[in-house]
Design a protein around this nucleic acid. Structure first.
Length: 453
RNA sequence: GGCCCUAUCGUCUAGUGGUUAGGACACAUCCUUCUCAAGGAUGGAACGCGAGUUCGAUCCUCGCUAGGGCUACCA
């Protein structure tokens, strides 16, 4: 196959937000397309009119853009291609490859229960395919598979050889009416029409694959190559679902950088040469056949760590833009070096507004208040006499004042400036806050009384 | 129940017919230190079980077990 003929797609249905697993599928499709110079399409599978909404469609596009996974050409919507399915369906109907099934839901249900009881594979083998095409009489359209002995097989690009007995599938459904196709039919018609070369999707679709191959055959088309991705698992090793918390890509927007999410998702099913790497580096290293075969647990701790790595690389401008915080450029590294999640930046509010804290916090260990006050006064003296140029000099002078009991000076100074038990080095805070603010805060700390906090 | 997929530290994984089974995240301890973060050092931690092939199996084959997915007039 010519490289330029490689065409892949991501085909989400707008019945919910972009699932994190679909995001990963999108990433691998995208990486593959970029690597081989192929095309990556976005197809919205909105054949289920009951559940599909425009709102979800928009959120899916937004999530994909946020991840930086740009698609080629216009978005394709199944709801706009009804004629395509109709033509294909009428052809198969005329050829007797599909037929209207007149069994009622109750009959099908009874059949299924009987099969389970008799330990038989669940499927519907229709026995009145000969009835006249009763469009009015209702009934769903099924592919005529019957009790075929045919073995349907394919070489999965990730899992290897997989085969099923066609007879196990029965006469499966392909459409409600000629203008209302079901997933397994619409997807095949589209993939064929779009000349998709590789279908790369989650392994929950493995069992759909033989059905789809049968549809390709009925249509007289050559199936594409299939590659089934392992699922992303919840900590309990089951498929990630709502009860496990955040499962939509947009859920990560608030706290995570898209680069971190992409990096994490990429690394969950593939081993790259390093933990932190750009999309471009991922493209360079990517090979479809090296995708892992087994599912990986979604490890939030690892995601957080990756996020940390990216947050630290943010420039002050990028950081301020992302968080909408108005802090000085020099203060940004103090925050980013300590941040796991973007929204945690609020904990550093003392960098842009005066802290509120209890007087007791100023005391280093069990030091008495008047000693603390004395330390603060001496620190204040040092600061007022410093020229705000070389922080090494400030540090040195404070060290001198502190002697061998540095906590005595640094702890109260740090609390006076940050109002917190934990914060960056007070010398850095002095530099970042500026003389006026520092003097103001230290004086306020010195003047603290029990009732004035 | 049926069909299908999977199997190395807690997690993500590297790896080879002979290795002290390697790395990362997480965890613990120590160093640094006014606190936090970062950084450095150290440590605990894995080849699911049983046969077979072989001089030798974590690695190859088979079986078992376990986990997972699918089993719609959803996608």
């Amino acid at each position: 196959m010519n490289k330029s003929q490689i065409r892949v797609r991501i085909a989400p249905s707008p019945t919910g937000f972009l699932h994190i697993g679909t995001g990963q599928s999108a990433l691998y499709n995208w990486l593959f397309a970029k690597k081989v110079g192929g095309q990556f399409y976005l197809r919205i599978e909105d054949t289920d009119q009951e559940r599909s909404t425009k709102k979800y469609e928009e959120s899916i596009l937004e999530a994909l853009r946020w991840l930086g996974l740009d698609w080629d050409d216009e978005v394709i919507r199944q709801s706009e291609r009804t004629q395509l399915y109709r033509t294909a369906l009428e052809k198969l109907l005329n050829e007797g490859k599909t037929f209207y099934c007149h069994h009622s839901q109750e009959e099908l249900e009874a059949e299924r229960q009987r099969q389970e009881f008799q330990k038989q594979p669940p499927r519907h083998e229709c026995n009145h395919k000969d009835l006249p095409l009763g469009k009015e009489g209702g009934g769903i359209i099924r592919l005529n598979v019957g009790n075929s002995e045919q073995v349907v097989s394919f070489e999965d690009q990730i899992k290897g050889h997989i085969e099923f007995r066609a007879g196990l599938l029965g006469d499966f459904s392909v459409a409600r009416t000629v203008t209302d196709p079901l997933y397994n039919f619409a997807a095949v018609v589209d993939d064929a029409e779009m000349e998709i070369s590789h279908v790369i999707r989650g392994e929950d679709h493995i069992s759909n694959t033989p059905k789809q191959i049968l549809v390709y055959e009925a249509l007289g088309k050559t199936p594409p190559l299939f590659a089934h991705l392992p699922l992303i698992l919840a900590p309990d090793r089951t498929k990630l679902s709502k009860r496990h918390g955040a499962m939509a890509v947009v859920d990560y927007k608030k706290n995570y950088l898209p680069e971190a999410v992409v990096n994490f998702l990429g690394g969950l099913g593939y081993t790259f040469s390093k933990d932190i790497l750009s999309r471009e580096e991922m493209i360079q290293e990517f090979e479809l056949s090296k995708i892992h075969k087994s599912g990986a647990i979604f490890d939030t701790k690892k995601l957080n760590w990756i996020n940390c790595q990216y947050i630290r690389r943010l420039t002050p401008a990028e950081f301020k833009n992302l968080t909408n915080l108005n802090i000085s450029n020099s203060a940004v590294p103090l925050v980013t070096e300590r941040l796991e999640k973007l929204s945690d930046a609020q904990e550093f509010s003392y960098l842009w507004s005066e802290p509120i804290y209890e007087k007791e916090l100023l005391n280093w260990k069990d030091t008495e208040w008047h000693i603390t006050q004395e330390s603060l006064k001496r620190a204040l003296g040092v600061i007022e006499n410093w020229d705000f140029q070389d922080s090494e000099i400030l540090k040195h002078r404070l060290d001198v004042v502190a002697g061998d009991n540095r906590g005595m000076v640094y702890w109260p100074l740090r609390v006076a400036l940050s109002g917190k038990e934990k914060s960056p080095d007070p010398v850095q805070l002095v530099v970042v806050l500026g003389k006026n603010e520092v003097v103001k805060r230290v004086k306020k700390a010195i003047g603290k009384t029990e009732f004035n906090s």
